[in-house]
Amino acid sequence: MLEISNLHASIAGKEILKGINFSVKEGEVHAIMGPNGSGKSTLAQVLAGHEAYDVDLEKSRVTFLGQDLLDLPAEERARLGLFLAFQYPVEIPGISNSYFLQAAMNEIRKSRGLDELDAMDFDELLQEKMKMVEIDPGFASRAVNAGFSGGEKKRNEILQLAVLEPRLAILDETDSGLDIDALRIVSEGVNRLRSPNRAFILVTHYQRLLDYIVPDFVHVLYKGRIVKSGGRELALELEEKGYDWIRTEEDAGAPV
């Protein structure tokens, strides 16, 4: 459903992604690992359509569900079924979680020719999903992420994922900063949402997430390139050897 070929992107004149290639099929779970600053969040943001990044449109090609993704503004990518759980979700003072999510849901429904949900129907759905990710019902009326703890923000991203039911979800370090209970809740949420026509890309630093959510593929991103791909055993190997293993291997061949 997602094919990325030779993706180049830069910010502030600095090239961050230097030719990314991989594809994701329906139902698959891909994990992306890599040291700090290697470009994992950049990849996630570029796929979501953040305009601060300059994508080299000559070289890069990304298709999603048969459409040219790089041609679409962020909101249309979301309506098509792409979802990004942010590494650092923003706080939106003055707008309640339920109001925000109802708006998002209805924009997506409208774009698919479906009827908008009224406040009552939406509330029912929201309560059900909140139960699923074990979020206190009181959070529905609280301003989006405002004053939430780090873990609460991450769980709130998963709540949005559960409500919006995208085709492809990119989770950017959703496991970071979670205690063991929260990690279990988040993973169970994701596992429940796994389905033959929904795919996931998990950006993570930790093998422990992959104990809960077993990936089909693991990719290692280093200095803007995918330098290794494999099955879940690659994650175990990384956990054991650390990124230095990748660094020495890569930097040995790279010009100084």
Partner: peptide, 21 residues
């Protein structure tokens, strides 16, 4: 951008933000 990544276009997002403000 957070709004847009959830399917809400810029104009609507600004309206909602202004209302919230």
């Amino acid at each position: 951008f957070y709004f847009r990544s959830r399917g809400v276009d810029e104009k609507t997002a600004r309206g909602m933000l202004t209302y919230g403000f």
